[in-house]
Write a protein that binds this DNA or RNA. Sequence first.
DNA 1: TTGACAGGTGTACGTCGTACACCTACCGTC
DNA 2: GACGGTAGGTGTACGACGTACACCTGTCAA
Lengths: 251, 251
Amino acid sequence: MYDVHLSTGYGAPVADQARRVPLNRDRVLAAAVGLADAAGIESLSMRRLAQELGVVPMALYKHVSDKDALLDGMVDAVLGEIEPGAPGADWRAAVQQRVLGARRAVLRHPWARRAIESRTSRTPVVLDHMEALAAAFRAGGFSADLTHHVMHTLGNRIWGFSPELFDAPHDPAAPAPGPAEQEARAAEFGRRFPTILEIAVAATRGDLGAVGGGCDEQFEFEFALDLLLDGFERLRDQGWTSAGDPRRGGV
Amino acid sequence: MYDVHLSTGYGAPVADQARRVPLNRDRVLAAAVGLADAAGIESLSMRRLAQELGVVPMALYKHVSDKDALLDGMVDAVLGEIEPGAPGADWRAAVQQRVLGARRAVLRHPWARRAIESRTSRTPVVLDHMEALAAAFRAGGFSADLTHHVMHTLGNRIWGFSPELFDAPHDPAAPAPGPAEQEARAAEFGRRFPTILEIAVAATRGDLGAVGGGCDEQFEFEFALDLLLDGFERLRDQGWTSAGDPRRGGV
DNA sequence: TTGACAGGTGTACGTCGTACACCTACCGTC
DNA sequence: GACGGTAGGTGTACGACGTACACCTGTCAA
């Protein structure tokens, strides 16, 4: 569990000197990603990360300017895993490949979704992904104008995830209610929120016990993606322009 | 600036006793919302909030179980502002009214967007909104099945916002680059990300200086909402079911 | 030989959330 | 009128956290 580097006093002890590999930004980021994967993003602290690397907390600041930059770097590392997609594909396949590739990368790291949402900086890696998507639309005959709005419409789905609407990650620490109370709750729920209940029943095909298991996120994601791409295609074929859009008061 | 309640020692001083209104959950939440509105969500701490209320930090814990619950309560307070919408409207108008109403509420509080994204708990207020939306779809002839997927597709847009894709809130503390450097950066940007540049030019109608100002979020939001509602309508009219969807391996 | 520098170290500060023990005014019950 | 419970306030203290700052040390070029 504990690393060898437990020396007190300045500098690395002579015994370790030979075998110590100097830290660098990539090793720091990799360790941070690994720690977040294993222990959750909420237990990723500079101190904990330093400990994991056998180093004093302040050593990290030689490679990463602050914790925000660390998070940015981690997100970059994840997004760097996105496969570029086959070159010959038509626009629709190209977009799907890119987006579903991003999804695979993000799903590999449970914390990535949340981290991406909370970041706002447009690093080169982020811009690369956006550029590739935008270029796919342009190559598919979309105007720059339409491409812009279409990217906005995709929103965070360009990163391969949609927000979790229904499945509250239920607290495992909460005491399990008895079956009687459970039934009473369900009844009360059905009275106040009949449509949501109806939807849940439909979604689980009657097996309401499975509600806690959440929806089929992959299906929901692809459903929405296809719906959007269909809509985009239709607008393109109609020759849509923002100047001609009634919301812009055009025509 | 400072409140009168500066006494040391236990209990409220006798002089104040008559005029002190006891705290309650609603007053705590209102103060928290006000503080977040005025000073930003990042400077909302239990200590600061207590100070604002002329009270010791621990006093808050008599009304709110912890900071997470405080945040939940604040989000609830904002969502409670959503107007229900006119009763006679057809499904499409009902959805639009509800969603654009949510948008107005969220836009009143700059922190709300981020707070909603980071919350996962489904409070009654949250469920009320979802129930109203789902009911509107059902009343419009959508199957429970389709309603479910359609709500997923709307995603966070049911709260009236879409993720900020393009407009990085640029750091006001950053030193402004000289015009020469600015031009060099733009050139480098255009080389690496030509399509994004092209889109930005189209979006700002050539006035690239306006890029920092961000996109017209309201337009983007309504554009996406209409695109989605059109798609939903089409699926409904086609009699779509998830069992018949090729992704589900049906039919 | 020297001296700059990259990369590590230790200490210290201010801030945070909150557990815990406490006190006190008020209320209904005897 | 005494009394006990409870709602709502208080003070202290603890263990995190991020990070500024001063420091040391081995390496390598001049």
